[in-house]
Each structure stands twice: as structure tokens, then as C-alpha cells.
Design a protein around this nucleic acid. Structure first.
Length: 346
DNA sequence: TATCCGTGGGG
DNA sequence: TCCCCAAGGAT
């Protein structure tokens, strides 16, 4: 990479001017020019946004900040309630780390560390989130690199190396672009640009404020970048889930804290790797159908059995329907519940 | 370094 | 229908 080429990428001025006019109105965002955001809200939003779309996060963020306006409130919250409020958002290790982080920060006076290194030491905060909090909440000149920025930078410099191998190269290039002035607005502007203009499929280069600086645009290959290494095929797995009833109660259990759907509420099931677990209690089990669910690295078909328990359950606990809330279940288990409630509905 | 970890929407 | 992938982190 030639030095003059790097220095030539003076994108921050037109990008910030664009951001001043087009910044999206988001629940966790302080509009440009209206001061710094609350570190607690920045942290919470950034953790929720990890590998998750803005649309999916919005209502969760509003709900969480309504229930727990300050980090001390969240730190004092009940584990099960936090897991229930997180249910449906996915990647449940985030919820466990969220609570651990909140309790650490609250125990240290309620103030987040104001350095990238201090933030990195907290559970659930990695390179991206540490840089984002530093830049957005503290206006520190940190380089924030998420999937959007990777794409924007890959196109700006026409990087042909496929992801994820290209990541270090893209981070280094992004670092040459971070301006000393308004780094927080700059970071959000890069991400907004990636989300609305420099999109994965059909980038709208005609509306891009920095297309003049973009190698991929000039070469006519913006839509082809970044390149990606081919992904391994997704294996198929299967298992059985039991929806046991006893009068007005349903049989539920808490999944083990670690691993898939760790710590979430669930109907008892076999393992999904071919394990042959017994039913969770005596009942005249009968099949109601099956549900399909696609996880990040495998697809699952779960056969659903229901039955009225004729004796005490061997595992899990009976929860009265009055205390049961479908929204406390992760997505897969919502499908199981919906199937058992109304097998005719698709 | 590679694998594991959810879910929903868009093309 | 299927595939892509989204403001990643932990191990």
C-alpha cells in the first residue's frame, strides 16, 4: 500500500457533512452536535447490536432501558428476568455477560472505564465494542470496525483478499482513516453509510458522499466486494422435545448455563446429536408434529410430543400457565409451543 | 486459528 | 425456497 494513496483518502469531511444531514434517528443515539451519549446506553445498545439488526434491537433496547434505566438497576436485576427479557434476541451468552459486566461496573462505582483497554477487560466487550464505546460515549479517536466498516473499507481500497482473512488488513486501513475530530460521529457515520448506502448487495454509489475516493467504485466492482471465503455446509440434526402438561401447568426446564441456548427456558428435549434421552416423566406421549429451526452452524428438526403427566416429572419443573409467558422462550421453543397450542397452524 | 453461538429480513 | 448476513465475543 502506497503512502500517498492512504493519505489521499480524506473522507472524514464529506462523510461527516453527510452524517449531519442523514444520521438515522435511533433510540440509543444522540443526534450529531448534541453532546455525548450515556456510556450505559451505548454499551447496552452495542452489545444488543452484535450480529443483530437494528430493527430487531430497537424494542429490546427500549424495554431494557425502561425496566433498568441505570446500570445499577440492571446489576440488581434477577438473572431469570434478564434472560426472559433477552429471549428471542439470540446469542444468549450476551445476556449472561451483560449481567456480569453490569455487576462488575456497578461494584466499581457505576462508571464504565474510559479507556479501550479498561473496557476490553470486561465480559462481553471485545475489540469492536470497546472501540465503539470509547468513540461514541467518550469521543476518543478509536477505530471502530464492524461488518459495515469492513465492507466500506474493502471497497474504498478495492481489497481483493477474501474475508475473514482480510480482517487485519481492513482494520489497518480503517485505522489510517480515523480522524482526530468528532471520532464518535465519524464511527457512526461509517456504520450508517454501510447500512444505508454502501450496502452488501446493491450499493447506491450515486448517493455516496465519498464515492470520489472509492477505488472499487472507479473500477466498477463495488458490488463484488468484499470477497468472502466459501462457507462450510450446514449439517442436519434432529431430536425430540416433550411438552408435558399436568392439569393447568406445563413442564419447563432451564438449559445448562453454557453452550447452545445456554441459560434459557426450554421444554425438555433429547440432545440433538443423536443422544437417546428418556422422556421427562410418565405420560401417554403422542406426536403433534415437528418444528424446523436453523442455527448458525446446523439445521434442526425437532419432533414434538405432548402428554398429560401421570406421575411426578423426572426433570424440569411444572409451571402454572398463569405464570407462563411465551415471550420468555427462545425462538426455537416458541415454535414448539405454538405447534402444541395449534397444530393446524403452519 | 477455527469453531461455537440465534434470529429475522431481504433478494 | 434458499442463501446471505447483521453495530462480534469467547474459547
Amino acid at each position: 500500500m502506497r503512502d500517498d494513496k492512504v493519505i489521499g483518502k480524506t473522507i472524514s469531511a464529506p462523510l461527516l457533512a453527510w452524517y449531519d444531514r442523514h444520521a438515522r434517528d435511533l433510540p440509543w443515539r444522540v443526534p450529531p452536535g448534541r453532546g455525548r451519549a450515556d456510556p450505559y446506553r451505548v454499551w447496552l445498545s452495542e452489545v444488543m447490536l452484535q450480529q443483530t439488526t437494528v430493527a430487531a434491537v430497537k424494542n429490546y433496547f427500549i424495554r431494557f432501558t425502561s425496566l433498568w434505566p441505570r446500570i445499577e438497576d440492571l446489576a440488581a436485576a434477577d438473572d431469570a428476568q434478564v434472560m426472559a427479557e433477552w429471549a428471542g434476541l439470540g446469542y444468549y451468552a450476551r445476556a449472561r455477560n451483560l449481567l456480569a459486566c453490569a455487576r462488575t461496573v456497578a461494584a466499581n462505582g457505576g462508571q464504565f472505564p474510559d479507556t479501550r483497554a479498561g473496557l476490553l477487560a470486561l465480559p462481553g466487550i471485545g475489540p469492536y465494542t470497546a472501540a465503539a464505546i470509547s468513540a461514541i460515549a467518550h469521543d476518543a479517536p478509536e477505530t471502530v470496525v464492524d461488518g459495515n466498516v469492513e465492507r466500506v473499507v474493502a471497497r474504498l481500497f478495492a481489497v481483493q483478499t477474501p474475508l475473514p482473512a482480510a480482517k487485519p488488513e481492513l482494520v489497518a486501513l480503517a485505522d489510517t482513516l480515523t480522524p482526530p475530530a468528532r471520532p464518535g460521529d465519524y464511527a457512526q457515520a461509517m456504520m450508517d453509510l454501510g447500512a444505508t448506502i454502501c450496502t452488501p448487495r446493491k450499493p447506491v454509489c450515486a448517493l455516496c458522499p465519498i464515492s470520489k475516493c472509492c477505488d472499487a467504485f472507479h473500477q466498477g466492482i463495488a458490488a463484488d466486494l468484499p470477497r468472502r471465503a466459501p462457507k462450510p455446509a450446514k449439517p442436519e440434526r434432529s431430536g425430540i422435545a416433550w411438552l408435558g402438561r399436568s392439569g393447568d401447568a406445563v413442564l419447563l426446564e432451564q438449559r445448562p448455563a453454557k453452550g447452545l441456548l445456554g441459560g434459557t427456558l426450554a421444554f425438555p428435549s433429547t440432545g440433538w446429536d443423536g443422544q437417546d434421552l428418556p422422556a421427562p416423566g410418565p405420560a401417554d406421549w403422542h406426536r403433534v408434529g415437528e418444528v424446523r429451526h436453523v442455527f448458525t452452524h446446523f439445521s434442526l428438526t425437532l419432533t414434538v410430543l405432548t402428554g398429560e403427566l401421570t406421575g411426578p416429572p423426572l426433570r424440569g419443573r411444572l409451571v402454572p400457565l398463569r405464570q407462563f409467558d411465551r415471550s420468555a422462550l427462545p425462538g426455537l421453543m416458541r415454535k414448539v409451543w405454538d405447534l402444541a397450542i395449534d397444530p393446524a397452524k403452519p
